[in-house]
Amino acid sequence: MNKFLRTLIPTDIAKGLSVTGKHFGQVFFTANRRKVPFHIVGEYPEVPAKVQPRYRGRLTLLKDEQGEIKCVCCLACEKICPTQVITIEKGKMEGRKMPFPVRYDFEMERCIFCEFCVESCGFDSIILNHQFELAAYNREDFSLGTKGTAQNMFELSPVGKYSVAED
C-alpha cells in the first residue's frame, strides 16, 4: 500500500508542500517579533543594514589630530591601484615638512574596491569606509577630490545615508 502511495504525484506535492508549509508557519506565527533567530530578512531602508567590520566601501582620506591631511604623497597607492583611479599632485604647504597633496583625485566609477591602496599605504592615511550605497545621478558626482563641499573625500557620500548607522 505504502509502495503504491509513493508512485502517485500528489505524494510528491504533499511532501514538497510540507517543507514549504513548515517554513511558512514558522515565519507566519512569529511575524512582527524581533530577534527571532530564523528571521533572515531585515527592514533595510528604515533600519540601516549592518556590515562586517572589514567591509570595503568607498575610499576616504583621513586627517590627523590637528585636522591636517595625513597623506604625505609617497604615491604608493597611485602605483598599486589596478585600475589607476587615483591621481595625486605633490605640493608644499607652509609650516609642514612633509609634502602635501595639492590634488588627490579619486574616480569612483572605475574603482573596484580591492583595498590594495589601503594595504600599500605605509602612513595609514586612507581607509575604505562602510558605505555601500554609492549610486549617483551625474557622472561628475563620482569624481571626488580634496576640495569642494558635497563631493570630497573626507565626509561620507551624501547619497548613501542608509548604509551607515548613526550612533
Binding site: 556590515v51 562586517q52 572589514r54 570595503r56 574596491f113 583595498e115
Partner: peptide, 22 residues
Amino acid sequence: FREREDVLDINEAFCGSRLTTT
C-alpha cells in the same frame, strides 16, 4: 540562496567583500 547568504557573510567577515573577494 538563503544558505548562500550565510557563506557570503563569512566571505565578507574575512575579506570585506562578498562576491569579488580578492
